[in-house]
Simulated scan of single mutants.
Amino acid sequence: MKIFVVKHKNITLLAGLLAACAIFYAVSYPSAVGAYATDRQLPIYCVEKDQKVCSISFDAAWGNEDTQTLIDILEQYKVKATFFVVGQWVDKYPESVKALSDAGHEVMNHSATHAHYNQLSADEITADVNTCNDKVEAVTGVRPTLIRCPYGEYDDHVVSAIRSIGMEPIQWDVDSLDWKEIPASEITQRVTSKVQPGSIVLFHNAAKHTPEALPSILENLISQGYTIVPISQLIIKGQCGTDYTIDHTGKQLAIQAAPEGSASSAGSSAKQ
């Protein structure tokens, strides 16, 4: 049996070399380290678009008194919107849910009971989401594919749970603040000054001054050349990580496919 003797001096030199390598890596690749440390699961806040296209959305959780007025205003301007409804709201106002669907608006999920998803397990979240989906589908015949988390709250486990059942969580990048009951003129100014191509605007269907502000907002956006579409027509559909990615701001971006005949394209084909 051979016995190897390592001198103390050699151990010291080796330790010093390893430490130097570690420092060099940290200095040379701080962005890689930082990206890993801040990696998060994010909903879609907005979408990268070259054209002037955006979406407007309404959360329906409480009152019902303005729903038909909103439908009439949207019809006047030939605009289709996305309404995120709570399951309990569906139970209370099924005729409004049907009216929204019959008018061509998207009826999507806003949870079953407006619970704090951050406080629920993954199984509890998916059960709650599916309960609301069942109620919407029973009235409209269409099962929701999008959800807005109650209170806009989420964390990694909430987003992962939602995507595990094939649904996409949606936030917003333009908040009308209509829920604060600010004047209609202020709502209009906030929205029209902040909308950009790919924006998603947040309204509430029972907010006091939204019906007053909505016509001027729609007129302004249309005069700017914006096309307003439901969110399902705004977002990029496909498999996350393959067809699109979401950056650190929540903006959804398309992943460009490699050109035919390129090295990466050939390599991809060879693996199939």
Rank of each mutant, 00 (worst) to 15 (best):
Q256I: 07
I71T: 11
T140M: 09
A161P: 03
A258M: 13
K194W: 11
V159Y: 01
C54K: 04
T145S: 10
T227A: 13
I125D: 05
D243R: 12
V107I: 12
A32N: 07
E219R: 15
K98E: 12
V33M: 13
H105D: 01
P144N: 00
G250N: 06
A22I: 15
V86I: 12
S160F: 05
Q88T: 09
V47Q: 02
C240A: 13
C21K: 04
V174Y: 08
K237S: 13
V191P: 13
F84L: 03
S199Q: 10
D156S: 03
L14N: 09
D91P: 14
V5E: 14
V201C: 06
A37W: 03
N64T: 10
V129D: 06
G152W: 06
N205E: 12
P30W: 11
P150K: 00
K2G: 14
E65W: 10
S57A: 08
H157F: 04
S193Y: 11
S223E: 10
G16K: 02
A103I: 05
G16F: 12
A184P: 15
I23Q: 13
P169H: 06
S232H: 07
Q171G: 03
L214M: 05
P144A: 00
V129N: 04
V201A: 07
I231S: 03
A20V: 15
I3G: 14
C132T: 01
I56Q: 11
N133R: 03
P259G: 12
D243M: 09
V97P: 07
Y29P: 05
I222W: 08
A60C: 14
V107Y: 06
Q224M: 10
N205V: 03
I231A: 02
V107F: 10
I73F: 12
L253M: 12
I235F: 05
K78G: 12
L234H: 05
F24H: 14
G238M: 08
Y154S: 01
I235A: 03
L120G: 11
L221Y: 04
T82L: 02
S262T: 12
T245M: 13
I125K: 07
Y151C: 02
T126N: 02
E75F: 11
S265H: 14
F203W: 01
K78F: 07
D39P: 02
K237C: 11
S111R: 01
D175F: 11
G267P: 01
L234K: 07
K92R: 15
Q272M: 10
G16S: 15
K49E: 01
D134I: 06
P215V: 04
Q68H: 15
S121E: 01
Q76G: 13
S268I: 02
K49W: 07
A213C: 04
S193M: 05
D247M: 13
P183K: 10
F203I: 00
V79C: 12
P197K: 00
E181A: 14
A103G: 08
Q51D: 06
P144H: 00
V159D: 00
T192L: 04
E153R: 00
A37T: 03
D50L: 10
D39S: 10
K49L: 08
P215G: 09
L146D: 00
Q224N: 05
Y117L: 04
